[in-house]
Write a protein that binds this DNA or RNA. Structure first.
Lengths: 303, 303
DNA sequence: CTGAAAGCGCTTACAG
DNA sequence: CTGAAAGCGCTTACAG
């Protein structure tokens, strides 16, 4: 084949928009350049940022991702996993809403690598999650740095590992001058907890570290309704940096961000590494959180 | 091949978990049994329910879906569309946040069928969206059925078609005794609008139809802060039935649901029909909304 | 260095 | 009715 023929072929190829068939390629290489993302987080509050990170990391490698939201029905879950395996996905990322619960599907003996994010993995697997202890430390230290001395903690159900981790960090910094208030992940609980504290005689907190943004939002609302000023009288910190809640609160919430996108990026690159046969250390990988400062704490001291 | 040999082969096949290779199948049939879902809705507020509907409709047909959230960067959008085409998707569903804006990618001359949902399609394409006029009619008629006579309308930016459609329905039922209050899709605007109305002398509304749930939530909050009781003094209706907002409002919002999951199901079946070469009528398909009754309107008359 | 052949895992059409 | 061959669109290994 002459050099100019070669040139002409190439030119015509791009002219007619020639696109190598990835299916045929995959048949040879035994790689489909697709992965599956499984989740039981129907709201997408965790999954969508994680997914954005995965996509961002993998698009450069030509990998596309199947998303599949499974309810709590194991049968349906199996159908979806099978559909992914039929498509010869190169790997699967299982994601959820909490690190101490499994998805309602068995992923233990799959012919492809599985990586876990925000859900409990099988022994010997790789699992990614946020560092709850470090995130909570960030929040409480921030409050202390602002000169707050009576810091309360209103949080979710004690049955969540992340709740216990955050409470542990809180207690290790603040001590047990005030009881940790465990409840539910709802605004209703935030209102109730504030009522509980303010209806009791004795000194009031000058800061409240909340287990998530929904509770924090309710706490801010409840305080306003009692004419307690935020942040002047009480500083409030949330957890999650869920924009839609944190940014709409009046005043907007200072809150802990779990860097879910970065977590997704890591998970994506890890499943890719496993696909390519590279060695990956198993275990739980904890990624650092960061504090997003808005207006619910006041003062912006050097940090 | 003898009958018993055939049986043995089949038995062994299931025993070793034989799984026909979909890639090889696709090479023959020219179908990959995958479709792509493109969206610019990073929150997933519209896309996730739509996606749930698509998945539900297509899983029975063995079709899996690639999800891809594209930002406003056309170059990145093209990369993602190309990645989907490389994977030989059987079709693409483009979805967005509003019916009068295009996604930042050109989908007009693709080798696969494209169906639009909640985003502007190319001429001659099939587009699915909710019936804003009918949904708004449902809301206002509900308020009128409860005996409300001074119904205000606080809504989003007039530049949105859906805002204009909803306002049109409102005006056609209520007349122009009160001006439509156009603003932004934020809680801040809900507060501002209530202040605007209540700081003006003259009779106050006994009901407020809001353009979305965020505005409705803020309206309810703002009324409470003015000691106006919801629903006793004023009934409030939202739009979207965004659980996380509607259910957490005090009292929980009666609101219009756009049936996004059903919309997704339709879109999925339609792209499948196009893939299989079945004829599909082009144009805009409008799906009916329904009213979800909670507590922000009071009374539960026969309906 | 160039070009033809073999083969990935299926299905379809054809010969026996 | 059964069984072998051809071919989908690629890549890899081999022969010239």
């Amino acid at each position: 084949m002459g050099d100019d023929t070669r040139e002409r072929v190439k030119r015509v190829a791009t002219e007619i928009g020639f696109r190598p068939n990835a299916l045929a390629k995959g048949l040879l290489s035994n790689r489909s350049f697709t992965i599956g993302l499984l989740t039981n987080d129907t709201y997408g509050r965790f999954t969508l940022p994680v997914m954005a990170g995965i996509t961002e990391a993998l698009v450069d490698h030509g990998v596309s991702v199947f998303l599949c939201t499974i309810e709590d029905d194991p049968a349906l879950g199996k159908v979806h996993v099978d559909a992914m395996l039929d498509k010869s996905v190169d790997g699967i990322i299982a994601s959820g809403k909490r690190i101490d619960r499994r998805l309602p599907v068995d992923l233990s003996n799959l012919p492809v690598p599985v990586v876990y994010a925000f859900t409990e993995g099988t022994p010997g697997s790789v699992t990614f999650c946020a560092d709850d202890f470090q995130g909570a430390t960030l929040a409480v230290e921030w409050l202390m740095g602002l000169g707050r001395r009576r810091i309360a903690h209103i949080t979710g159900p004690e049955s969540f590992v992340s709740v216990r981790e955050r409470a542990k960090a809180y207690l290790s910094l603040v001590g047990d001058q005030l009881p940790v208030l465990y409840g539910t992940w709802s605004e209703a609980w935030g209102h109730e907890a504030v009522a509980k504290i303010w209806n009791t005689s004795g000194p009031k907190p000058d800061a409240i570290f909340c287990g998530n943004d929904q509770i924090a939002r309710a706490v801010v609302d409840a305080l306003r309704e009692r004419d307690v000023r935020v942040p002047r009288d009480v500083s409030v910190v949330g957890f999650d940096n869920w924009e839609i809640v944190a940014a709409q609160t009046r005043p907007p919430l200072t809150t802990v961000d779990m860097n879910l996108k970065a977590l997704g990026r890591e998970a994506g690159l890890t499943v890719l590494a496993l696909t390519e046969g590279r060695a990956v250390e198993p275990g739980i990988r904890t990624l650092p959180c960061e504090l997003v400062v808005r207006q619910s704490c006041g003062g912006n001291p050097d940090h």
